[in-house]
Design a protein around this nucleic acid. Structure first.
Lengths: 250, 250
DNA sequence: TTAGGTTGTTCTCACATTGAGTTGTTCTCG
DNA sequence: CGAGAACAACTCAATGTGAGAACAACCTAA
């Protein structure tokens, strides 16, 4: 620090004026497709464009609390349902001109949720929807939110490899096939059912059996599947690696 | 966003007052030990405690630029040497009471550098040193910098697994043994020399041969070693995994 | 009610990767 | 010159992975 910084430090009105916001990349799986929570902006800048839920960090809340509050406001979620949503910090975005109104640093967060109700009820005038990520390319996104979403999706794909967070897209009890569907949806391609089954059961602490089975077979046939719940592992060891992706390596 | 937020958005003086800083966890390897750049604070709060290099983000610079500037100021580094330092964003820290003077959100960064000169010259009155990370426990650290350092070290250890960033701790040309020493130093335990050698050469794009060898054998004997430089891979595939660490998994 | 197709689960087998140890050679130091 | 160290290449067993097959349980549609 130089002398100027020190002076600034002692005079709360003298430090550079930068606003701090939180934005949330909230993901869920609906009808076998990965969906993202978006808000349509009702005023300039980027009026009519789609944006991530977010807003200013309040003086009395920390970053994670602010992100969870924004998520609650837009989804109408609360209590136990909200508490079960996985929320982690993604990264911060602070390009000088990312908001035309003023200097804003946004601390982006990433959320994984089981299928949630439509967000319309209980929020303000802005339109909020769960949009399939496959439909993103055709949408106009506000600010640098396109970049934030890309980073969030890549983080989500990577996290499924070495953490048990895929279970956060499911309800408390699930079948191995449902878990496999999460991986296939987030990674975007099919997995070998037999190998996946073997792998999931062999990783210690990933899932634990409930002893129960589904009431009926699948909609298109097949036997009843055994039910599992999330285990106590916080990391998968060894990891469940995505099939090789040579392109991304160089 | 609710109505209050909208009003705030249009009135630059009405948004919550939060300062934005950058801090840098700068790592290098000296004498076979991992070192960290620390500054001794010359004034309260935390006077006399050790802190990460950092300071306010300036209105005209983005986050990465600010972090690189702070690093340059404290190391006296510039030009090509500075440009070769790997710098990436680590995470943001925004607990309400992390700075007693005011609300501060710090965007922490992580830097990997080859052995650098002592930082004393060219900087301001504060004392700056490269401290072995093994000596950290006995030091009083300012703010939440202990936590930030922990997160930085864990990120560094993880990054060595799946990226070729270990080469950033070395000069342009290096031997496989020197590269292995980086891994052993950062991970904190010895690796099997033969297996490491095989693995490094088998991962495409990790290192490429220069064709040359060292002028002399090692200080304690042994043949001349072949020299390599960093390859063009940005990710290691397959990764070079740390030996299992059961404790951290649950 | 039955036929045909789907799914959950368990196997098998070939192949790749890893951990551990060995060998041979080159070099430095005393 | 001899001892010890380190580079580089090899072997071998254990483990993990990809691909496919087997089989029973179950659904829907005819």
């Amino acid at each position: 620090m130089n002398e100027q910084d020190f002076l600034a430090a002692y005079d709360p009105s003298a430090y550079p004026s930068i606003a701090v916001t939180v934005d949330v990349v909230a993901l869920t799986i609906r009808d076998g497709e990965l969906h993202l929570l978006l808000i349509r902006r009702g005023q300039p800048p980027y009026e009519g464009h789609w944006a991530l839920p977010g807003g200013f960090v309040r003086p009395d809340e920390d970053l994670a609390t602010g992100a969870r509050r924004e998520l609650a406001e837009e989804t109408g979620l609360g209590g136990e349902r909200l508490r079960r949503v996985h929320l982690e910090q993604l990264a911060s975005y602070g390009a000088v001109d990312r908001d035309p109104r003023m200097r804003v640093v946004s601390v982006a967060h990433l959320a994984f949720a089981p299928d949630l109700p439509d967000p319309a009820a209980g929020t303000d005038a802005d339109e909020a929807i769960w949009l399939p990520v496959t439909a993103l390319t055709s949408r106009q996104l506000a600010f640098d939110h396109g970049r934030i979403i890309e980073d969030g999706l890549e983080r989500a794909r990577a996290k499924l490899e070495y953490t048990p967070l895929a279970t956060r897209f499911l309800d408390g009890e699930f079948t191995i096939s449902e878990l496999r569907a999460v991986y296939e949806t987030v990674w975007g391609h099919p997995l070998h059912a037999g190998n996946f089954h073997r792998k999931v059961l062999s990783v210690p602490g990933f899932v634990e059996s409930t002893g129960a089975s589904t009431e009926r077979g699948g909609a298109r046939g097949g036997p009843r599947a055994k039910l599992y719940r999330a285990g106590d592992a916080r990391l998968l060891h060894p990891a469940l690696l995505r099939p090789a992706r040579e392109e991304t390596v160089r």
